[in-house]
Amino acid sequence: MKTVMNMQEMLSELYNKKILIVDDEPALLDMVSHILYREGFYNLHTAADCACALKTAGEQPIALYLLDVRLPDGDGFSLLENLRKISRLPRTPAIFLTACDQSDDKIRGLGLDADDYIVKPFLAEELILRVRSVLRRVYAIDSEAPIFSLSGVIVNLENATVSRNGRETSLTAKEYLLLKKLWENKNKIVTNDALCLAAWGEDYYGCENTLMVHIRRLRKKMELCPSSPRHLITVKGLGYKLLI
């Protein structure tokens, strides 16, 4: 019961965050506000240009910026810098709405620590997902505890344990990282490379044998019959797949 209460509190905290949307296209502003409003975000502010955005942000603390890259009186990147200068909060997250094709490198290359970017045009679902995930990450609001069941085995990623017939086993750090990666891409193939990268970082090269060992251990913990796995499937030559 307590958990449920906490979750509701957390959710309302999430949805009460003030979001400032800046775009020079009124129709787009309307649309984005509408999508977010429908989702439950009520504290929405909009601005059509940099000046207006700075004014709005000066009047109240904003929890998230949604910024267009091209604005009539400047660009989104320098607007973000200016917004952060006047902000009363330590570091406000920002998501860029961009119409460029190769925005990915541009945003990374500028080192502006944008938290995410969305390429126009986007689907409502995409926008909501990203807004929620940035808010959760930055404000440490985690309502969705990844707990799932595999043929009766309960996997709890929050505290990194696997429960089988009431007996709890802990996951090692690497096992946890691997399982988390597989869970995030559940029912999809995750390549060996992506798994190694998740568990060992950039210099993962040559970790494939170690990966196999860890996968075998994971199977022992979460598969009823580790020799013929039903959930943690090997895809020959490519990687692994978590079937849920």
Binding site: E25, A27, M31, R38, D68, A99, V119, K120, P121
Partner: peptide
Amino acid sequence: ISGISHDIRTPLSVITGCSEE
């Protein structure tokens, strides 16, 4: 061409968003 493809995206976003709604 790059500019045009850029300019198409904003109205297209509105279309997508509104039609989804």
